[in-house]
Design a protein around this nucleic acid. Structure first.
Ligand SMILES: [Mn+2]
Ligand SMILES: [Mn+2]
Ligand SMILES: [Mn+2]
Ligand SMILES: [Mn+2]
Lengths: 217, 217
DNA sequence: TTACATTTTTAGACAAGGCTAAAATTTAAT
DNA sequence: ATTAAATTTTAGCCTTGTCTAAAAATGTAA
């Protein structure tokens, strides 16, 4: 149907879209490790195929067509991540790279059966929701620790960064999805903060606080 | 490491090699639905990468390097086929197309873990042996029905053609791997024959007899 | 051993995707 | 309103993998 390259562009645009009405060429280039000129070329192709609306010098947005395509790719990516963790003993910091490949396999039956094997999971190993076969998924409210008030607490429901380094940092400090976390102190100067889990207290930088999403209690 | 296209050439050459000392350009083109000129180009590239030995106008053969590469691809292909049948309720005539895609996923851990999940299967759904992580596999003696003597019997241990149409033909006549088959009559004129299973007697053409491999009892 | 047929290679072209450098446009700052 | 900076597009080139048509090499049959 669509090439791997087209699918990667569609996915990147979808993720950058969120909220904004148009996604810029430069942001796409940044998100994909390519150059702006390459992006411009691809945007024209996506527009030709009715996957995106492209307004020169202004930006682009996915058509409904493109959105449907994106959610199916994301569905595949996240289901494969669950498979790798649940069935193949991968840890949550090892799955992304392989899922980037597996998400491009074309077979409707494959993904439906995989969904069944995994018993229709709702979330991937990083707490991200998995679209169903129709592309629907729930957007639960999650708040970055950096945006909490002092004293508030919640349960870790997602992470923004899914890099190996960040996930291994969390492992090291015994923080995982479902861990209950309370914000004890918030340093106004640099945004760093002191948090508390069942097991320990921990001082974290603003960067890390931005990357931990809680379901507030 | 290697491109999908390179991997497909390597696999095709490996399968055509069997016995012969050199594989011809035309045979490769036939086996891959490409033109001979495209094959020539690729053979030069494979030779440059030390994956094949290429003798212009004479033919080509894989280097040890190329052979190792081929057996790993075949290992992946066949393990995925087992996975699809055993874990995802695919039937044996539905797996090949998807396995053609999955065999190109690059991840050592993925395939080792898959092997473990499947409990180290020795054969794929079509009776073909699965190479281990070192590339070793047993070449069991299998004989096409068309080469049996009248009266001999055996157990279906493999099929040559793995097309959907052929496999569905076998399903229709309740013939599967492990089915015990006896050759009752062999018609010298057209090579067709009469065979007998536990369930029924069946008249088959030479084409079909060529495609059914028995482990002779 | 010639003459013809088949196989294989070469030459030239094309599409997809990507890059660099230069030009055009938009945005921000005097 | 100008000018400067940043963004975006265009132009031209490259690589991979493919194709067609023509040329070269090999094989075969009288
Ligand atoms: Mn991921
Ligand atoms: Mn994820
Ligand atoms: Mn197969
Ligand atoms: Mn098979």
């Amino acid at each position: 149907m669509h090439s791997v390259s087209e699918e990667n562009y569609i996915k990147t645009i979808y993720h950058l879209q969120d909220g904004k009405s148009l996604v810029s060429t430069n942001d796409i280039a940044g998100g994909m490790n390519t150059k702006a000129s390459s992006v411009t070329d691809m945007l024209k192709k996506l527009a030709d195929k009715n996957l995106a609306e492209y307004i020169p010098y202004k930006g682009t947005r996915l058509t409904q067509n493109g959105i449907n395509c994106a959610t199916q790719i994301i569905r595949k990516h996240r289901l494969w991540e669950v498979f790798l963790v649940e069935k193949l003993d991968f840890s949550w910091d090892e799955v992304h790279e392989v899922a980037e490949q597996l998400e491009h396999i074309q077979s409707r039956k494959l993904i439906d059966e995989l969904d069944k094997l995994l018993e229709y999971p709702k979330y991937d190993p990083h707490g991200d929701p998995i679209p169903d076969a129709q592309g629907n998924y729930e957007k639960t409210a999650k708040t970055a620790i950096s945006k909490l008030e002092k004293g508030q607490s919640g349960v870790l429901a997602g992470v923004h960064d899914t890099s190996t380094r960040f996930l291994q940092y969390l492992d090291k400090h015994q923080i995982e999805l479902g861990t209950q976390i309370q914000l004890l102190e918030l340093e106004a100067f640099d945004g760093s903060c002191l948090i508390k889990t069942d097991l320990k207290e921990l001082h974290i930088s603003k960067t890390i606080a931005d990357n931990l999403y809680l379901k507030v209690l």
